[in-house]
């Protein structure tokens, strides 16, 4: 239970970081924290104490009740890959923004309004 609460606290921290910070890099860090909080949550719900690898083999009979659920791990890996792609793109955008504006402060990067 504590682990779930900590996980949600991490999620809250990430969203706080995205909303409140003015530095582009800190916003990106906040995004990454948010993504990872969800990934952690996903892994947590599939965690089983003393669980075994979910392999059905003829010579090693294992009861399904003691196996861990393999699906969330695969899904989290996919989610991490997606997160990587998004983060790489956003970092590249932040670097191009720095090149154009000479600052990472979002208060000074605001040509668009209205």
């Amino acid at each position: 239970m504590v682990a779930y609460v900590m996980c949600m606290a991490l999620l809250g921290l990430g969203i706080y970081c995205v909303l409140m910070k003015r530095n582009l890099i800190k916003i990106i860090v906040g995004l990454v924290i948010t993504e990872y909080a969800i990934n952690l949550f996903f892994v947590l719900i599939s965690y089983r104490k003393n669980g075994l690898a979910p392999i059905f083999a003829a010579d090693a009979p294992v009861a399904p009740e003691t196996m861990v659920d393999p699906l969330p791990q695969a899904l989290v890996l996919t989610a991490i890959v997606i997160g990587l792609a998004t983060t790489a793109l956003i970092v590249a955008l932040a670097m191009r923004l720095y090149e154009k504006y000479g600052t990472f402060d979002i208060a000074e990067i605001r040509e668009l309004k209205g």
Partner: peptide, 16 residues
């Protein structure tokens, strides 16, 4: 390619 792109971008910024 991502790593190279970011490094080249950084070099370009520094040169400027």
């Amino acid at each position: 390619a991502i790593a190279v792109a970011l490094v080249l971008l950084k070099l370009a910024v520094e040169k400027e």
